[in-house]
Design a protein around this nucleic acid. Structure first.
Lengths: 301, 301
DNA sequence: AGATGGTCATAACCGGACCCTATGACTGCC
DNA sequence: GGCAGTCATAGGGTCCGGTTATGACCATCT
C-alpha cells in the first residue's frame, strides 16, 4: 500500500505530456504498463487523478497538483543520484587528508598536481599535523587518509609503505666536515647540533638513534619549525639533523647534506587508513596519485 | 538501473538505527531483505554506503550524507501522500462552487453548515454569478460544481435536479390583493410591477411566462439586486415578481406572497457538473450536503 | 452511415524483483 | 571455548510489473 518512484514518474509524465501513450513513450514503456501504474497510484492514494474518456485522459485538479509537487521531488532525487554517481566516477568528491608537515612541503605538491590532472574536480582538505595527530585523526575518522609514521603496529590502522625518510646532517657552507662522505653519530655528538622540538617525531627518532650508539643527544638549538632550523644552519650556528624530505629543494643546493652512519636514522613514511573503512572514490584517486608520485620519478632524492 | 523508494527508506533507516537488523525491524522487514536493498542501492549508485564488519555496519561518509538528503526527500513524499489521503478521506480539500445569488442566500447556508458538521476542514470557494456565468464556469472547469438553471440540454454538462423555484408575487403590506389566494398574470399586468434587470434569468423567466399568457411584461421598476427589489416592494411602490427562494426568510413575514397562476412561472434549480469530469472527494461531500439540505426539511417553503 | 484513426482499458502470459526462512561466517565477550 | 551479536548467502515462493494482443469507445472524414 505504499507508493513507488515509478508511479510518481508515471504521474508526472502523464500530466506533462497530457496523454498516457505519450507518457509511456517518454518512459520507454508500453501504454498498458503506464495505465496500470497510474491506476495503482490512484488506488493507493484513494484519489482520482485523471478523468478518462475515449478521446484522452485529462488530469484532475488533484492530479495536476500532485504531479507538480512530485515532479519537484523527482528532480531532487535525480539530482542526488547524479551527484552520487559523479562521486563514484571520481568526477567530484572531497578527501580529508592529514599529513606530516615535512611531507606536505615535498611529496604532496607533486601528488596533488597529478591528482588534479586525472580528476580535476576532486577537492582535498589538508591538515598538517605531527605524527601522533595524523594517526589519531585517521583513527577517529576525521580524515580518510593520513601520511605519517607508525611505531609498532596499530590494530585500528592499515598502512602502506610510501618511502623511507632518512635523517641527514645539514652542514653550513664551508664547514670542515664538508670533505667527508658520511658522518658518524660520534662525530656529530661533539658538534653543536640543531634539531626540532622534543615533541616532534624527528626528534624522537634522532634521540633513539643516538641512544643506540650509546650517546646522549644534547642539541645546542631547538626549533619548532623546520624552516627555522634550516635558517639556523645557514647562519652557521651548528649542524642540523633533519629529515631529507623536509629540505626544500630550492634551499638544499646552498647547503651541504651528508648521510649519517646509523641504521636507526631512518623512518618509513606510510599511507595510513582506518582498518575496515573503505575509501571513497575520491580518496582512492588521491591514494593512487600519491603512490604514483612516490613510485614514479617525482621522488625525494 | 534506477532507484526505488524502498531503497531510500532502507538507507535512511540503516543510517539512523546504525544497524541493518534494527533498520529491518523498523521497516517490518527481515534482515536479509534489508541487506539486499542496501547492496542493490550501492550497486546502482556505484558507491559504498556502509563498511561492514562482523560487529556491525558503519555508514560511510557518502552514506551518511545521502541518508540525510534522501531522508528529507522521503519526508516530503510522505507528507504529500498523507495530504492526498486526507483529501481522499474528505478530511481536507477545497471545492470551487458557482451559484446563483438567489440560491446563495437561501439554500446554500444550510448546505454549508451541514458540510461543516460532517467535514469541518473542507474549504468552499464561492462565486455567485448569474445563470449564464454559472454554466460557463462549470464548462470551463473554473468551478467543479454549479448551482443554476439550464435552458435546453447541454452536452458538456451533467445536471441533477435540486428543487423547483417558483416566481411569486410579493405584495406590500395592506395591498388590496391581500385577500386573494392566487393571482393571475392578467391581474398582475395591470399593476405597477417590480422586477430584476433584463439580464437576469428571473427576468427572462417572467417575460416568457407573461408572453405565454399573451401579455407583455412592462415593469414599473427594475433593480439589479434582489434586496433592492424587495425594498421597493416594502416601500409600497408596486408588486414584486421574484423567485421564492430569493426571499430572505426574515423579511418574508413582513410581506405577503402569493402564487402566480401560470405554469411557466417556475424554473428548475440544478446542480451542474462538467460531463465526464469526476468530482473531487471534497466536491462529492459538498454535493451530498446540498442534496441533504434540499431533500431534508431545510427546503424552501 | 460506415470506415478510420486515436484514445485508454482489459486479458493472458512471462520474467524478475522481492521477501522469507534457514544457515553460514565472523567478531567480541564472558 | 562457547555464546551472543552482526551481516552475508542460498533456496524457494509470491507478486509486481512488463509485454503483446485485443477490445471498447469517440471523433472525424468520406
Amino acid at each position: 500500500m505504499t507508493i513507488s518512484l515509478r508511479q510518481l514518474r508515471a504521474l508526472t509524465a502523464a500530466v506533462e505530456t497530457g496523454s498516457f501513450g505519450r507518457a509511456a513513450a517518454r518512459l520507454h514503456l508500453s501504454q498498458p504498463a503506464l495505465t496500470v501504474q497510474i491506476r495503482s497510484l490512484e488506488q493507493r492514494l484513494g484519489l482520482t487523478l485523471f478523468d478518462r474518456s475515449a478521446r484522452g485522459a485529462r488530469p484532475t485538479e488533484a492530479g495536476r497538483n500532485l504531479a507538480q509537487s512530485f515532479g519537484r521531488v523527482l528532480e531532487e532525487v535525480d539530482q542526488l543520484v547524479a551527484g552520487a554517481r559523479e562521486q563514484a566516477a571520481r568526477r567530484s568528491g572531497t578527501v580529508h587528508l592529514a599529513v606530516l608537515p615535512s611531507v606536505a612541503s615535498t611529496l604532496l605538491p607533486a601528488a596533488l598536481t597529478r591528482l588534479r590532472q586525472a580528476h580535476p574536480a576532486i577537492r582535498v582538505l589538508l591538515r598538517d599535523a605531527v605524527a601522533r595527530h595524523v594517526a589519531d585523526q585517521v583513527k577517529a575518522g576525521e580524515v580518510e587518509l593520513g601520511i605519517g609514521i607508525l611505531q609498532g603496529a596499530d590494530a585500528e590502522l592499515e598502512a602502506e609503505s610510501l618511502f623511507e625518510d632518512k635523517l641527514v646532517a645539514v652542514l653550513p657552507p664551508g664547514h670542515r666536515f664538508g670533505a667527508l662522505r658520511r658522518l658518524s653519530p660520534e662525530a656529530l655528538a661533539r658538534e653543536p647540533l640543531i634539531l626540532t622540538d622534543p615533541g616532534s617525531s624527528v626528534r624522537a627518532l634522532a634521540e633513539r638513534a643516538f641512544a643506540e650508539a650509546g650517546l646522549v643527544l644534547r642539541p645546542a638549538y631547538e626549533a619548532t619549525y623546520m624552516s627555522t632550523a634550516v635558517a639556523l644552519v645557514r647562519a652557521g650556528l651548528g649542524i642540523g639533523v633533519l629529515p631529507a624530505t623536509a629540505l626544500d629543494l630550492r634551499l638544499t643546493p646552498l647547503l651541504d647534506t651528508k648521510p649519517i652512519d646509523a641504521a636507526a636514522m631512518r623512518r618509513r613514511i606510510l599511507l595510513l587508513r582506518r582498518r575496515g573503512a573503505s575509501l571513497s572514490p575520491a580518496a582512492e584517486a588521491l591514494a593512487e596519485a600519491i603512490h604514483v608520485a612516490v613510485g614514479g620519478g617525482a621522488h625525494i632524492r
